Measured scan of single mutants.
Amino acid sequence: MTYRVRIENADGEVVTIEISADELREKGLTLEELLPPNARIVEVEEVEP
């Protein structure tokens, strides 16, 4: 499974990243732990691999 994640950074700019569930598991991280300081998740969407 892959996630498309929209993130708002500290400057108010919204960027989109895609990350797979396998990648998260391998790194032992959650989506929140990948965020840079002062950023927030705006939207998470599951996409087909």
Rank of each mutant, 00 (worst) to 15 (best):
M1A: 07
M1W: 12
M1Q: 07
M1L: 14
M1P: 10
M1S: 08
M1Y: 11
T2Y: 15
T2G: 07
T2L: 14
T2C: 08
T2V: 15
T2K: 12
Y3S: 00
Y3I: 08
Y3K: 01
Y3M: 04
Y3P: 00
Y3T: 01
R4G: 01
R4H: 06
R4L: 08
R4Y: 04
R4K: 08
V5A: 02
V5R: 00
V5H: 00
V5S: 00
V5P: 00
V5M: 05
V5F: 04
R6Y: 09
R6P: 00
R6Q: 08
R6A: 06
R6V: 14
R6T: 15
R6L: 11
R6M: 10
I7K: 00
I7Y: 15
I7C: 05
I7P: 00
I7G: 01
I7N: 00
I7M: 08
I7Q: 00
I7R: 00
I7F: 15
E8Y: 07
E8R: 07
E8N: 02
N9S: 11
N9Q: 14
N9H: 14
N9C: 09
N9F: 15
N9D: 08
N9V: 13
A10N: 09
A10P: 11
A10E: 14
A10R: 08
A10K: 09
A10G: 11
A10Y: 11
A10H: 10
A10I: 12
A10F: 12
A10T: 10
A10C: 09
A10M: 13
D11P: 05
D11N: 13
D11I: 07
D11M: 11
D11W: 08
G12C: 04
G12D: 02
G12K: 05
G12Q: 03
G12Y: 03
G12W: 02
G12I: 01
E13I: 13
E13R: 13
E13D: 11
E13S: 15
E13Q: 13
E13L: 12
E13F: 12
E13A: 11
E13P: 02
E13M: 12
V14H: 11
V14M: 13
V14K: 08
V14N: 07
V14C: 02
V15P: 00
V15H: 12
V15D: 07
V15R: 09
V15F: 15
T16V: 12
T16G: 02
T16L: 10
T16I: 13
T16H: 05
T16W: 08
T16S: 08
T16E: 07
I17K: 02
I17C: 08
I17D: 00
I17F: 14
I17E: 01
I17A: 02
I17S: 01
I17T: 02
I17W: 12
I17V: 09
I17G: 00
E18Q: 08
E18H: 13
E18T: 12
E18A: 06
I19R: 00
I19Y: 06
I19L: 04
I19N: 00
I19E: 00
I19T: 02
I19V: 10
I19W: 04
S20Y: 07
S20D: 09
S20C: 04
S20M: 08
A21V: 09
A21I: 08
A21C: 05
A21Y: 10
D22V: 10
D22Y: 10
D22F: 12
D22R: 08
D22L: 12
D22G: 08
D22N: 12
D22P: 02
D22H: 11
E23P: 01
E23Y: 14
E23W: 15
E23S: 07
E23A: 08
E23L: 11
E23D: 10
E23Q: 05
E23G: 03
E23M: 12
L24V: 06
L24F: 03
L24Y: 03
L24R: 01
L24E: 00
L24I: 08
L24M: 13
L24C: 03
R25P: 01
R25D: 07
R25T: 10
R25Q: 07
R25K: 11
R25S: 10
R25E: 10
E26Y: 11
E26C: 06
K27L: 08
K27S: 14
K27N: 09
G28F: 04
G28K: 08
G28H: 09
G28C: 06
G28M: 06
G28E: 05
L29W: 07
L29A: 09
L29G: 07
L29S: 06
T30E: 06
T30F: 04
T30Y: 04
T30G: 04
T30K: 09
T30P: 08
T30S: 10
L31R: 00
L31K: 00
E32Y: 11
E32I: 10
E32D: 08
E32A: 11
E32M: 11
E32T: 09
E32P: 07
E32Q: 12
E33T: 06
E33H: 05
E33G: 07
E33Q: 12
E33V: 03
L34H: 04
L34C: 07
L34M: 14
L35A: 04
L35W: 02
L35H: 01
L35V: 12
L35P: 01
L35F: 06
L35Y: 02
P36A: 05
P36C: 01
P36Y: 03
P36L: 04
P36T: 04
N38S: 06
N38R: 04
N38K: 04
N38T: 05
A39Y: 15
A39D: 03
A39G: 09
A39Q: 05
A39K: 03
A39L: 09
A39F: 15
A39S: 15
R40I: 15
R40V: 15
R40Y: 13
R40H: 14
R40C: 10
R40K: 15
R40D: 03
I41A: 02
I41E: 01
I41N: 02
I41K: 02
V42A: 02
V42Y: 04
V42R: 02
V42K: 05
V42T: 04
V42G: 01
V42E: 04
V42M: 09
V42Q: 05
E43D: 14
E43F: 14
E43S: 15
E43V: 07
E43H: 14
E43L: 13
V44D: 01
V44N: 01
V44R: 01
V44H: 01
V44E: 01
V44G: 01
V44I: 15
V44F: 06
V44L: 07
E45M: 14
E45H: 09
E45R: 07
E45N: 07
E45W: 13
E45F: 12
E45D: 05
E45G: 03
E45Y: 11
E46G: 06
E46W: 10
E46P: 06
E46T: 14
V47H: 06
V47C: 05
V47G: 04
V47R: 05
V47M: 09
E48K: 14
E48A: 14
E48M: 14
E48P: 14
E48F: 15
E48Y: 15
E48S: 13
P49H: 14
P49V: 14
P49C: 11
P49E: 12
P49M: 13
P49R: 10
P49W: 14
